[in-house]
Design a protein around this nucleic acid. Structure first.
Lengths: 233, 233
DNA sequence: AAACTGATAACTGTCGACAGTTCGACGGGC
DNA sequence: GCCCGTCGAACTGTCGACAGTTATCAGTTT
């Protein structure tokens, strides 16, 4: 997705750390110890520092001088800014997809919706992977690699954010109907409708995420566990 | 703009190299020799490599394995993808500015347009700095730091692209009236008009840039100078 | 007992040197 | 005369070690 894997050790380490972050092995707020990780991977600190630097520039890690790197832990205001950017990018992509759509890509969109509805009927929750799959299919239909790349970077931050939540957002029936409506708008070539549907969809997802974050924050503060990460001078 | 300058030597080197790239001291296609630059700056190669890595992730440099880094040299198709992203971001920002505008920011927009018109009357060309100033004022009015950050990254690539052209695009009278119309739309709170004006404006700028690139490419191929950068296997 | 101070330890930031690879030049063979 | 194999220089990729800084903790003092 990002480029060639064989651009040195740093490249491999980037992908390894990225997976650890996205899968929640390294939860938000985790501090990264350079010597320890370098020793575990059997490499030097040079390539590791380069890998960390790249992930910092992607927004998956944050870097504080003389204290090292930590997995990005978003606050509510960060979520708002994040979804503003995501809406700008994905709404534009939805418009483009409605204009540039090709039969094959419309079929793929419909197929993802169909698989989602089936999964929704068997289990109660819609798997998050299928949600990601829909949005990525839409990016493909937009035929704008540059925008797709940026959307993927934003999506990654959302994944990290979700990995820090114990109760994952349930992606309700509403999300599924949103997807189906968007697929229809793209199929018909109605760019404006696709964009406004996307905007409403993302606003809903943002609200769900914020509510989950706030409720879990309350549940966490009650027992006496201190706030993770996020230091105030 | 990007963050704290004092996050080590790498941070300072990033800013130094960034200025060299944006001002055209390092023209597009230039290869960066690590040992030479490190020696000139009086530092080691470690921080320098980190700085280069960051600029690669920003898109100002490109990196080829075992061959080092070079200043990004855009092809026409890159320009198209770049302006698709820029349009997505700046149109959304224009909409936001029309919604969230504050009196002080509207005044600033008008002031930039006024200064641009004065400069346009004295000299024939509109200084590029004033164009950048307008777009940055609009980003401020949008009150979306995350989008503003991404717009700035895209703007930087456009600046690099322009630095490789001998005859800078003249930013005609049309661009100035576009700016004034956008300022008016933002002042009135007409988000849709601000967005569509921005889209048209960027389409014009893109066309101007592509024409300049193509004409200069023809003039360069005639004398017998080989194509800079851009290696095909 | 609480607060301040000093030393100690751990970690990041930086450096110089080594290993591996690629590009170019030179010489030999056909 | 042209092509191919080999040698060599230059550069990137990687490593281990040193220096600087910050946090922690014990000891002392009020």
């Amino acid at each position: 997705m990002t480029g060639l894997v064989h651009r040195g050790l740093a490249g491999q380490v980037v992908e390894m750390l990225r997976e650890q972050i996205l899968t929640g092995v390294l939860p938000p707020g985790s501090r990264l110890n350079e010597v320890e990780i370098a020793r575990d991977l059997g490499i030097s600190r040079g390539p590791l520092r380069e890998a960390i630097g790249q992930l910092v520039s992607e927004g998956l890690l944050v870097h504080v001088p003389n204290k090292g790197a930590a997995v990005f832990a978003a606050r509510p205001e960060d979520v708002a800014a994040l979804f503003e950017l995501r809406a700008a990018l994905e709404c534009a992509a939805a418009r483009m997809a409605a204009h540039r759509r090709r039969p094959q890509e419309v079929i793929r969109l419909r197929k993802v919706c169909e698989r989602s509805r089936k999964a929704r009927e068997t289990g109660r929750k819609l798997p998050y992977d299928l949600d990601l799959d829909f949005h990525r299919s839409l990016m493909d239909a937009a035929h704008s690699p540059r925008i797709a790349e940026q959307v993927w970077l934003v999506q990654q931050q959302v994944i990290v954010l979700r990995s820090g939540l114990t109760s994952r957002t349930t992606h309700t029936e509403t999300s599924l109907t949103d997807h189906e409506a968007m697929a229809g708008a793209v199929a018909e070539g109605d760019a404006d409708r696709a964009a406004s549907l996307m905007e409403a969809h993302l606003a809903l997802v943002e609200t769900e995420l914020l509510q989950t974050m706030q409720s879990e924050a309350r549940n966490e503060e009650a027992p006496g566990a201190q706030r993770t990460g996020r230091s105030a001078p």
